[in-house]
Amino acid sequence: MSADVWLPIPADEIGGLPDGLEYAHWDGGSEFPADPADCVFYGVPYMRGAEVAVRPLPRMTRLQVVQTLTAGMDQMLPALPGLPPGVRLCNARGVHEASTAELALTLTLASLRDIPGFVRGQDAEEWRSGFYPALADKSVLIVGYGAIGSAIEDRLAPFECARVVRVARSARETAHGPVLPFSELPELLPDADVVLISTPLTDETRGLVGADFLARMRDGALLVNVARGAVVDTKALLAELDSGRLRAALDVTDPEPLPAGHPLWHAPGVLITPHVGGPTSAFLPRAKRLLREQLRRFAAGEELQHVVVTSG
């Protein structure tokens, strides 16, 4: 019986993979590349949606590892109870931090400086001069302080922010300074000029940025979401945007993709990008390195990296 590895990138494009395993490429197409029952290591197709990601799992009876190419695991966790015991679910830590942090900073600067307004002005041949907010001297609150949150702070360092405050599920110390627990958000939100959301989507964080959260943000503050759309209550955010009290820069939305005609498209003070934090030129080299190293460890019987949860 073969020990198959399903990869979202062709094996010959990754290179350097260990011998003794059978490699099959599946990018989420309607036909499976091999019998799912022989798969022991499943590399999940990237950006193909939850339905595709979980489709072969019920038939993968010998499965030992699920390796995503995403930082979040929210698409895969609902399938956990149906997996054989002992299956390790691994995320793509190290693949998306640089690109997502770049976009978080881009969205922040573009929104503060009203770059969308300048683009519209250029299209209309209008010279829209004047004073605009700077990131310098602003207070920034990072909500969700894992690898991406830390990478965002690294890129904020040269911009002379007044302060950067870190919040996560639980308190801890880091090289950048203390991370405060979610329970302190009510006291922290009124002091933040920019609130950056980079938390994973879990039962605890779904709808975290709701009406109460938004109401505590100071007038004129900017909400930047590079996490998952469902972390933010869209209806509550629309109410604040329509009032003109808050602004937002969103790489993710709920629903997603955002359908034509949705009021969020044309809400005042919002900048939207179509979930492009991860898919950049930096993705493929990092994804290949991750898969190569994980499979080396798997073949050698070594501990895998970035295990988020184990079934069973």
Rank of each mutant, 00 (worst) to 15 (best):
L112W: 12
R93Y: 08
T70V: 00
L80K: 04
P84W: 07
P81G: 07
L77W: 00
G94T: 04
L77V: 12
L80S: 01
Q75E: 10
A110L: 14
E97P: 00
T108E: 02
L109S: 06
H96L: 14
T70R: 04
T108M: 15
T106M: 13
S99P: 15
S111N: 11
G86V: 10
P84M: 06
L109C: 08
V95Q: 09
C90L: 05
C90V: 04
L69A: 14
L103K: 12
A79E: 08
A98R: 14
L109T: 10
P81Y: 12
H96R: 14
T108R: 13
A79W: 09
P78Q: 07
M76D: 00
V87F: 01
G82I: 05
P78S: 08
P85D: 11
C90F: 05
G82M: 11
P78R: 01
P84F: 06
A101D: 11
P81R: 06
A92E: 09
R88W: 04
P84H: 00
T70Q: 03
A110S: 15
M76Y: 02
Q75S: 12
D74A: 10
L77E: 04
L83P: 11
G86F: 09
G86Q: 09
L105G: 13
V87L: 04
T68F: 05
A98D: 13
M73E: 00
V87Y: 01
L109K: 08
L69G: 15
R93Q: 12
A101G: 15
L107N: 12
A101Y: 02
L83H: 03
L69N: 13
L69C: 12
G94V: 11
V95I: 12
L103D: 13
M76Q: 03
P81I: 08
C90P: 07
G72A: 04
P85E: 08
A92K: 10
S99L: 15
R88P: 00
E97L: 11
P84N: 06
L103P: 15
P81V: 07
E102D: 15
L83Y: 06
E97T: 13
L83F: 04
D74L: 03
S111L: 10
R88C: 10
L80P: 04
L89F: 12
P84V: 05
G72V: 01
V87T: 07
E97W: 06
